[in-house]
């Protein structure tokens, strides 16, 4: 891995933006909401202050909320594979990068996802402090970016200057033309040490650890799931904002001369998600559906396929759940039973 020293991260960002369209988390105009938006002349300098995470992870860049799969005009089918412009996502946090790697596997054979993914280079950024509600160290997803999950990784050192790590040839090509001083091995050593210090600043997450054990040992009583199911208002917020959630449904929309098949994000918390044509539903109660959701996030069953849990510790579900059954609430309830 090559590494360089960087005084001005904005200069790097501008250099990258001169080559491809660039998206980065920034405040929506006139508000204090951190959203993924295109870089413009109004975009402010990169900051390392809270909030660290934008409302959405980066998944909608590859797996959009809605997407046309093909068109049919009454006699012929028309392919609608995307032909995206080359783009860069700048400032992706470690949890969200782990989730992209997770979805890369899930959508390995999905040409729509892959077309967008191949057109995108990722620039990660290390989190130098815990974010509100985040627990990435507990699920091995941060706070610093894992090797190989981004093309470039930026790390702010204690003197406020930056360490730039290059993980792919595409990343190396991006920084051609920038005059950068090579970093030395002690810079890398210091970064490794700093990650331990940042990780130590996260609040205790024993409820998460205990909860994972209970889920994997099938020790959570059905009544606990039912009680939490009663709190599920079926809003779909957790699955919409979860960086690893990937379920979709498809449907045909009539258009002028035929129809188009579109897919959109689905949610496993909906009653009709698994309801069969007969009306029979293998997950008929809200409690069973809540249980299934968390099983998918924390069961060892899936680590064989994905090499990690389906939760990357971002905490977005806790913030967006109106029924108080986001990850912290659920894992506290689970770890308190028995």
């Amino acid at each position: 891995m090559k590494a360089f020293l960087l005084d001005d991260i904005d200069q790097l960002r501008d250099h990258l933006a001169s080559q491809r369209s660039l998206f980065t988390p920034q405040y929506t105009e006139g508000s204090t909401e951190l959203n993924w938006l295109p870089l413009t002349s109004k975009t402010k300098s990169v900051t390392t202050e809270r909030p660290l995470l934008p409302t959405y992870p980066a998944k909608q860049f590859f797996f959009p909320d809605r997407e046309i799969l093909f068109q049919f005009d009454g006699s012929d089918f028309k392919e609608t594979l995307p032909e995206p412009e080359p783009q860069i996502l700048f400032g992706v946090r470690s949890c969200d990068l782990c989730a992209i790697a997770y979805q890369d596997r899930f959508f390995r054979q999905d040409p729509y996802y892959q077309a967008r993914r191949r057109a995108t280079l990722l620039v990660g950024i290390d989190c130098n402090m815990p974010c509100e509600g985040g627990f990435c160290p507990t699920v091995d997803a941060g706070p610093f970016v894992r090797d190989g999950l981004a093309d470039l990784v930026c790390h702010q050192q204690q003197d406020a200057s930056w360490l730039l790590m290059v993980h792919t040839p595409a990343g190396e090509a991006l920084i051609q033309g920038l005059e950068l001083k090579a970093a030395e091995s002690h810079h890398i050593t210091r970064r490794n040490k700093q990650e331990q210090q940042v990780a130590a600043r996260f609040p205790s997450a024993t409820h998460i650890e205990t909860g994972i054990q209970r889920i994997n040992q099938a020790q959570v009583p059905a009544e606990t799931w039912q009680a939490m199911g009663l709190q599920c208002l079926t809003c779909s917020g957790c699955t919409n904002l979860c960086p690893t959630c990937s379920c979709f449904t498809s449907y045909d929309r009539p258009v002028a001369d035929g129809f188009e098949r579109e897919r959109c994000w689905d949610s496993c918390l909906y009653d009709a998600f698994q309801r069969e044509a007969s009306g029979h539903n293998p997950s008929a109660t809200a409690g069973q559906r809540v249980e299934r959701f968390w099983f998918h996030k924390f069961s060892n069953e899936y680590t064989k396929t994905f090499d990690r849990y389906g939760c990357t510790g971002c905490g977005r579900c806790e913030k967006t759940c109106p029924g108080v059954i986001g990850v912290h609430s659920v894992m506290k309830r689970i770890s308190a039973t028995l």
Partner: peptide, 14 residues
């Protein structure tokens, strides 16, 4: 819907 890309252009608070 244009199938070429899905580039967010803006977010409007409402």
């Amino acid at each position: 819907m244009d199938t070429a890309s899905h580039n967010i252009s803006k977010i409007t608070s409402s």
